[in-house]
């Protein structure tokens, strides 16, 4: 009823598994959904207005992806909690290191931030609004199109000038402070090859790890992109009977919150596994000298890393409030399903 009628056939098509469908997880996964465009091509071919049709098509996809009461609602609701964690953690470390009063709203300002698996741009937009110079990458061309279109409608996001040669700042009178935002259809590995290591102050990959085939190699590439003293944030799902029950049995099979097949239980990663990965992970000191620095996590007591090195926090969906809640520090049981993880690269 609230949806424009023109999008209804599309929505219907989306309900079919074979049609183009930016699934919550597919959108974040690292394989391209582009070839699925085929089914849709038929109507586009032979027309002289291919471009306009395609834009209309992606606009519709974008409005579905960004429909906060629709299929991606859970993801939208999760975003404030992710941002809260990122902000709190950066603030905590900054305050630890300087005596000056650090203002809450400025912690991200001017930082180079990478959002891996940016999907429709949910996290990237928030990061850019907080003043970070943000690069969102996704292996799905369609997601990059959705994200670019959506951001271009928001005058406080400087997407066009960053992505294009033509500068478009101050398009509207009245826009205060623009966040710089770039989207790119690429993989972490490609980006690393092009940009080289230590390129970002902050690297995020939210709800991505549980979809990749080789998590060790993926973690390694992401970690390499972090500057010394920089930060790495991720969110994923723990592997245990509870998380199976909630995310696969209940959400996929029973309630169909998310498309069946979205998750693979064996790909879930436990906090302890990530912690032990970073207990041995050392960044190369420099590319010239083939030696490595100290491990990212040096001090662990009872399985909990030192607060200034790494932290795990559970996030729990509270159905009666309709929102996700960031669990207080040290509430171990809350990390049994969805959780956020932060680790810092030693300064060397």
């Amino acid at each position: 009823m609230m949806r424009p009628s023109s999008s209804r056939p599309l929505r219907h098509a989306l309900a079919q598994p074979s049609a183009l469908r930016p699934l919550p997880r597919t959108s974040r996964s690292l394989h391209s959904t582009c070839y699925r465009l085929n089914g849709h091509r038929a109507s586009l071919e032979g027309s002289s207005t291919v471009n306009a049709d395609e834009i209309a098509h992606f606009s519709r996809l974008s409005s579905l992806w960004w429909d906060e009461t629709g299929e991606f609602g859970m993801l939208h609701k999760m975003n404030p909690v992710r941002m809260q964690f990122i902000k709190e953690k950066l603030l905590e470390i900054r305050r630890e290191e300087t005596d000056d009063d650090v203002e809450e709203g400025t912690v991200l300002r001017g930082l180079d931030v990478l959002d891996v698996g940016c999907g429709g741009g949910l996290l990237s937009e928030s990061l850019a609004r907080m003043g970070a110079t943000t690069l969102g990458i996704d292996a799905s061309e369609s997601n990059i199109a959705i994200a670019s279109l959506h951001a271009s409608a928001d005058p406080s996001l400087d997407i066009t000038s960053a992505a294009l040669s033509a500068s478009s700042s101050h398009l509207y009178p009245g826009v205060k402070g623009k966040g710089r935002l770039v989207y790119e259809n690429t993989s972490v590995e490609n980006l690393l090859a092009r940009r080289g290591p230590a390129s970002f102050d902050v690297v995020c990959f939210m709800e991505v790890l549980e979809h990749v085939d080789n998590p060790r190699a993926f973690l390694d590439s992401c970690a390499q992109l972090v500057k010394p003293g920089g930060h790495l944030f991720l969110s994923t799902i723990a592997r245990n009977p509870l998380s199976y029950f909630l995310t696969i049995f209940t959400a996929e099979k029973l309630l169909r919150f998310v498309e069946p097949g979205t998750h693979t239980y064996s790909k879930y990663v436990n906090p302890s596994e990530i912690i032990s990965y970073f207990q041995t992970y050392r960044s190369p000191l420099s590319t010239a000298v083939r030696s490595a620095g100290t491990p990212w996590i040096g001090r662990v007591a009872n399985g909990v890393p030192a607060r200034v090195e790494a932290e795990t926090r559970g996030i729990i969906y509270v159905p009666w409030n309709g929102e996700w809640r960031l669990s207080p520090r040290g509430e171990g049981w809350s990390e049994w399903c969805n959780y956020l993880f932060w680790v810092r690269r030693p300064k060397e």
Partner: peptide
């Protein structure tokens, strides 16, 4: 797709 979006 990529070209179209950019042009757009």
């Amino acid at each position: 797709t990529a070209k179209t979006i950019r042009k757009h």
